[in-house]
């Protein structure tokens, strides 16, 4: 009994630790006072302001486009690579898997700097495309990580059976293999999207002065004080994701 209580209490404490900042940020989005340190009463003003604020909307747009494109391209390259890698002999496979691990294990700051140095050395102007390339680079490993286990679970005989029954390899791929690995592809896509959305360090080094994502915009405002509209925006994004996850969870529960 006591043991059970202690366990629940412990989980509760950790959850409070993890969620306390979230509640504070949501609270701040309704704060009449512009200062983070003072509570000036309840308002919805910042939610209205948000949509008028062109620079925040631009940063949001850039962030979403980069997240979407980088996740899509990384999913394509990563899924194709996973198929080929799991079809390789041991040594080349080990080498490729090791290279895949580099961006995941290396420090963000080193990855960011090394990409920036490459772009500069190639006389490639830092901007939207350099950020996109960088995001694709760190996203591919997450896709491979999600797709590879699904490929390992595949039963190769179904594909052979499809071929024996007269399906072309491409037709067989779309009808037999893809449906089986699709959950992994989807996880990889969402993972990549999330990582891109939340990245600050690599974007910071590769973006150049022209563009801002939400992260880099927030960073420039840390010293002079965050605009309350940003709290409103992140509250909206958080709630959107929360609803989406609840929906997915409920649908999965129904399926079971």
């Amino acid at each position: 009994m006591v043991k059970k209580f202690i366990k629940k209490f412990y989980v509760g404490l950790i959850l409070i630790f993890l969620y306390a900042p979230i509640f504070i940020l949501i609270g701040l989005s309704f704060n009449k006072s512009k200062s983070r340190a003072k509570w000036g009463g309840f308002t919805l003003h910042w939610y209205k302001e948000l949509f008028q604020n062109q620079s925040i909307m631009n940063a949001l747009y850039t962030t979403l486009i980069i997240a979407l494109l980088s996740a899509l391209i990384a999913t394509l390259i990563g899924t194709a690579a996973s198929l080929a890698i799991s079809n390789m002999k041991k040594t080349p496979r080990a080498i490729l898997v090791a290279i895949t691990n580099i961006p995941m294990l290396n420090a963000d700051i080193v990855t960011g700097i090394s990409l920036m140095l490459l772009f500069v050395a190639m006389r490639f102007t830092l901007g939207f495309s350099s950020v996109l390339i960088s995001h694709i680079t760190f996203n591919i490993p997450y896709v491979i990580l999600s797709v590879m286990p699904k490929i390992k679970q595949l039963n190769p005989h179904t594909y052979e059976a499809a071929l024996d029954l007269g399906a072309s390899p491409i037709y067989a791929f779309f009808k037999v293999i893809l449906p089986d690995i699709f959950p992994g592809v989807l996880t990889g896509f969402f993972l990549a999207f999330t990582m891109s959305l939340d990245d600050f360090v690599i974007t910071h080094f590769t973006k150049g002065p022209q563009i801002n994502t939400l992260s880099t915009k927030i960073y420039t405002e840390v010293r002079k004080g965050i605009k309350p509209e940003i709290y409103a925006l992140s509250t909206l994004m958080f709630i959107a994701v929360l609803l989406l996850l609840i929906l997915i969870n409920r649908r999965n529960a129904e399926k079971k």
Partner: peptide, 10 residues
């Protein structure tokens, strides 16, 4: 899903 800079600022 809340930006990590914002969470740290909180």
């Amino acid at each position: 899903w809340m930006n990590f800079l914002l969470r740290t600022i909180a």
